Amino acid sequence: MRSTYAIKDFWKETYKTDSPIPFIITAQVVVFLVVHLFKLLSDTENMSTSVYAWVFEQGSLPNSFAHFIKQPWSILTYSFLYANIFNLLFDCLWLYFIGNTFLNLLNRRQFLTVYCGGALLGGALYLLFNEFPVFSSNSPYLNTSSMALGALIMSTTTLVPRSELRLFLFGNVKLYVLAAIFLILQFGYFFLNDKTAAISYSLVILTGYLFMQALKNGKDWSLVFKKRQKRKLKVVHHAAKRYASTNKQNELSNQEVIDGILDKISADGYESLTSQEKETLFKASKED
């Protein structure tokens, strides 16, 4: 009975929330296990053609548009493939900590815009640059979640650069320090192994920075994906007009408060906020 309750509590606390992070991490782990199960089967049955290699290739993003047309799903699957478990664990840890920092300040729609947008934009740029011989990649395909993760890390760091993460051996470390180390190392890896991916990665990071700068200036790019409710024709009385006018003024006033809180975070970090300001920011993100 206790184990049943424990499983239910885990499911409720992990998956029945507004956070998409558990679903992304679960998908990455499941894909890793399934793909490497094919590798195990190929090794034990001594197949002439490795099923693992075929599945891995089909899920990876090819370095030519002509090849991509034959497997268009790879623009979605390439960011879920991992060749070894250490890269998987490392990226999942980054996604967990940085993603939750992002969601503590902003909403789910904005998170998905940055993360999924980074993956799709990175893949599209990779295909585009490979069409030019001067940028053509030596690698046959691309498989990494670093495009999405890079956009997320840059956006979060732009919003709260002085936020801190507690590391086991080093104590509290500023987010901008960790972000700089991660982004530079990842860019260096791409530059040495796949210069086309390095160029695409740089532009994705820049886009993550521009997204957050635009948001600070009151322009939310993620609103493109917000569902618009159909307006119904109805009789509007003068009292309703006065209420609508008052409601509009309240919305503008609330937006000014949120903008002020975001400016304070950018200048002094999330820790500088009062409990009331944190609650206001949290409520605003849920309302969006």
Rank of each mutant, 00 (worst) to 15 (best):
L152N: 03
K12F: 00
D91V: 11
S139I: 10
W54G: 04
N107C: 14
D263R: 11
L185S: 13
F23M: 14
T4V: 12
F10V: 06
Y141S: 10
F65Q: 07
E13Q: 15
C92L: 11
S3M: 15
L95I: 10
S19I: 13
W221Y: 07
P140N: 08
S146F: 00
D288F: 04
L89Y: 00
K227W: 01
S285N: 02
I261P: 02
L41N: 03
K39N: 05
S163P: 04
S145M: 01
L112D: 13
M47L: 14
T196M: 07
D43I: 11
K8Y: 09
G260H: 04
L37E: 12
F190E: 03
I69K: 06
V29T: 14
P133H: 02
F56L: 13
S64G: 12
L149N: 04
S272T: 06
H36A: 04
L105P: 00
I24R: 05
Y82S: 02
Q255Y: 05
F191W: 14
F90R: 15
E131Q: 12
E256T: 09
Y189C: 09
F102K: 14
L167K: 08
Y115F: 00
T144Q: 08
L152M: 04
P161T: 05
F65R: 09
T280I: 02
L273D: 10
A197D: 09
Q28A: 12
K216W: 04
L40K: 11
S50D: 10
G260W: 00
N247G: 12
K12L: 13
F65I: 14
I98A: 03
T157S: 03
D263T: 15
R166A: 08
N104L: 15
I75T: 08
P22E: 01
I205H: 00
I24G: 00
P22C: 03
G269I: 09
S42P: 00
A284H: 06
A66F: 04
A66P: 03
N250W: 05
K174S: 02
E164D: 00
T44A: 02
Q276P: 11
A6P: 01
K219F: 02
R162N: 15
